[in-house]
Write a protein that binds this DNA or RNA. Structure first.
Length: 505
RNA sequence: GUCUUGUUAGCUCAGCUGGUAGAGCACGUCACUUUUAAUGAUGUGGCCGAUGGUUCGAAUCCAUCACAGGACACCA
């Protein structure tokens, strides 16, 4: 049923024809001795040679056929491996008797993975190629590839069948190579600073560390529900209590929320915690981190992103309340008065949920009038305590916390603060969150008394930060949808699959 | 969750105010030993996303559903 398509049938027949003639269409004994990139580099001098060839050299390369131009008794074929694309020249007279006409021309086609041996030469058009003297099919593709020029552009196909997207679109491969580099560099940066990489649970008894709806699963042996973690924060801080002074974790978080261009239900973040430091140290290390990334990725610090130009040499720092007036244009006299803020928001056509406190309303003003205007990297500091349940209060101004968020191109990239380490204060913050939950805020924090107990043994003054890796990669690869930096973004199942599930139930 | 746009051949897309479906690539056959999205000739290929409705007649109009894109809402 799955292979009923006539093109697939045709290709299966070709695979069978090869098999009948003694050629395994899924051969396993690859003899490849170089990659295409290396071949092109090593033989670049052939261009300078008088007869444009060196028959004393011999290489075996492998790859997928992307273009196939048969011209009678000779053919030009473009094959591609992970490192690059190579043109090979296949002729009847350089292969053993009959193979070219009865096998190559009849049964080999675009999409097949082949292995060829031969010597380097340069064509009349000046392209360094491989003159083939041995030819072997490694893998027969029985499904045809998408069209060679336009490739596959349908986003649904690109996300659901990412392998096709990767076969057809070199720039997509590049994006994911960059993503891998970013994660690798991030790991190296923090290791070089003396941070210890740790792994904490993905299944939590309490969904803590952030405000979000969790996914729920069930542990049969224990007979209890578990939550896929929404953040690793509370576990990492337990490790600081335990005496590790600098830890980080790069891993997935899961949030049961809506999906859009910047949200996927599972996403990757780095969180790091640093004892005997404050959020001011985090500002410095964050600047250093970006510098490190740009240097090692060889990116310009005057960075084009869509229609924007971001200056990564221009890190700004501004307190939240101040940003409301200087950037958001909100009158200074209203930013510290609940009723005036509500009136102002209403005047702008924005309705607010009843019962919001001053800090939440200030956050609302920020989201409405400031966030999208922050293009160059900007640390917004001094967050209200009401919307920062895990952050340490400022010693001088107890209504604000020692916290910042980093915004770039109008999007939040990082969230950081000096950690709350007073167990009594932490307990009362949790109680405040419980009260909010009673009032219908279903995303308020859960009480985590085990965590409070951990704090009660004493956590050194610590600063901690989370950075959204997906959004960071979006920036660095100039992508504008999180799906384009996730190899397999979340998709609804096609209706057929839903029906099958229904039948089982 | 709301609004909006889309879904036609393996892929990329046409198809006007309703009259039984079209191109390019790919694929089959033929020709071709220096091509670059090779070329020339010729041919095959479709439940027009699904289900209903209007109509003598629906890819086209209407409704519902499914999936996708975009915007908004929610959310760090």
């Amino acid at each position: 049923m799955i292979f009923e398509n006539k093109y697939i049938q045709q290709r299966i027949e070709k695979a069978n024809a090869l098999k009948d003639a003694g050629y395994n269409p899924y051969a396993n004994d690859s003899q490849r001795n170089t990659t295409i990139e290396k071949y092109l580099n090593v033989n670049s001098d052939v261009v300078e040679m008088e007869n444009k060839r060196d028959e004393n050299r011999h290489y075996i390369v492998s790859g997928r056929i992307k273009f196939l131009r048969i011209m009678g008794k000779a053919s030009f074929v473009k094959i591609e491996d992970e490192s690059g694309m190579l043109q090979i020249y296949v002729t009847r007279d350089n292969l053993h008797e009959g193979f070219y006409n009865t096998m190559f021309k009849k049964n080999i086609e675009v999409g097949d993975i082949i292995e060829v041996g031969g010597f380097p030469f340069v064509t009349g058009q000046g392209e360094l190629s491989l003159h083939v003297d041995s030819f072997k099919l490694l893998t027969k593709a029985i499904s045809p590839l998408p069209e060679k020029f336009h490739g596959v552009t349908d986003k649904e196909i690109r996300y659901r069948k990412r392998y096709l997207d990767l076969i057809m679109n070199a720039d997509v491969r590049k994006t994911f190579q960059t993503r891998s580099r970013v994660i690798s560099l991030t790991r190296r940066f923090f290791e070089d600073k003396g941070f210890l990489e740790v792994e904490t649970p993905m299944m939590h008894p309490i969904a803590g560390g952030a405000n979000a709806k969790p996914f729920v699963t069930h542990h049969n042996a224990l007979g209890v529900d578990r939550y896929l973690r929404i953040a690793p924060e509370l576990y990492l801080k337990r490790l600081i209590v335990g005496g590790f002074e600098a830890v980080f974790e790069i891993n997935r978080n899961f949030r049961n929320e809506g999906m859009d261009a910047t949200h996927n239900p599972e996403f990757t973040s780095i969180e790091f915690y640093w004892a005997y430091k404050t959020y001011k140290d985090l500002i410095e290390i964050t600047k250093e981190y970006f510098q490190y990334l740009f240097e090692h990725l060889d990116l310009p610090t005057l960075f084009p992103y869509g229609d924007l130009e971001i200056n990564f040499d221009n890190f700004q720092e501004i307190p939240l309340i101040k940003s409301l007036t200087t950037i958001g244009g909100v009158p200074a006299d209203i930013t510290k008065d609940k009723e005036k803020i509500i009136a102002y928001l209403n005047e702008k056509g924005i309705t607010v949920k009843p019962g919001m406190n001053l800090g939440q309303l200030q956050g609302e003003l920020f989201d409405e009038f400031v966030e999208e205007k922050l293009i160059d990297p900007t640390f917004i500091t001094e967050y209200p305590v009401e919307i920062s349940p895990l952050a340490r209060r400022s010693d001088e101004h107890p209504e604000i916390t020692e916290r910042f968020e980093l915004f770039i191109a109008g999007r939040e990239i990082a969230n950081a603060f000096s950690e709350l380490n007073d167990p009594i204060d932490q307990l009362s913050r949790f109680e405040g969150q419980m009260a909010a939950k009673e009032n219908g805020d279903d995303e308020a924090h859960e009480m985590d008394s085990d965590f409070v107990e951990a704090l009660s043994y004493g956590m050194a003054p610590t600063a901690g930060q989370g950075i959204g890796i997906d959004r960071l990669v979006m920036l660095l690869t100039n992508e504008h949808s999180i799906r384009d930096v996730l190899l397999f973004p979340a998709m609804k199942p096609v209706s057929q699959e839903i029906n099958e599930e229904d039948e089982e139930n």
